[in-house]
């Protein structure tokens, strides 16, 4: 049964990865990354029981507690940036001068 659950989780992870790779908008990717983190928590839990070592659940707990900090950082980042060009993938011409100055 654990094997079936593992395979199902892995397939879900692959699907989330497809969404993260395809986009099209940045928000899709953020959501996909978040989804991927959640599935990783599940995968860790299942594997911990699959190996018969439930004390490894610590790892899943770490992810569950820490994963969303990255999402908060993304929120803060989006709020901070001067232009609102996040609707679609920014290509070369899409970034204004102010943004490029620092490099």
């Amino acid at each position: 049964m654990y094997y079936v659950a593992t395979i199902a989780t892995l397939i879900t992870m692959a699907l989330a990865l497809v969404r993260a790779l395809q986009g099209p908008s940045v928000y899709d990717r953020v959501l996909a990354a978040n989804m991927f983190g959640t599935k990783a928590v599940l995968l860790f839990s299942i594997i911990a029981f699959l190996y018969g070592r439930p004390d490894f659940l610590d790892l899943a707990l770490t992810y569950a507690l820490i994963n969303f900090i990255g999402v908060f950082a993304i929120l803060e980042f989006i709020r901070r940036r001067p232009n609102d060009a996040i609707e679609d993938d920014v290509t070369k011409g899409d970034v204004n001068d102010d943004n490029v100055v620092g490099r």
């Binding site: 990865l17 993260a20 790779l21 986009g23 940045v26 990717r29 953020v30 996909a32 990354a33 991927f36 983190g37 990255g70 993304i74 980042f77 993938d89 920014v90 290509t91 070369k92």
Partner: peptide, 12 residues
């Protein structure tokens, strides 16, 4: 080429 996307993907 979009570094923000690269950051998200490196998280994955």
């Amino acid at each position: 080429q979009h570094l923000f996307v690269a950051v998200i993907l490196s998280g994955i």
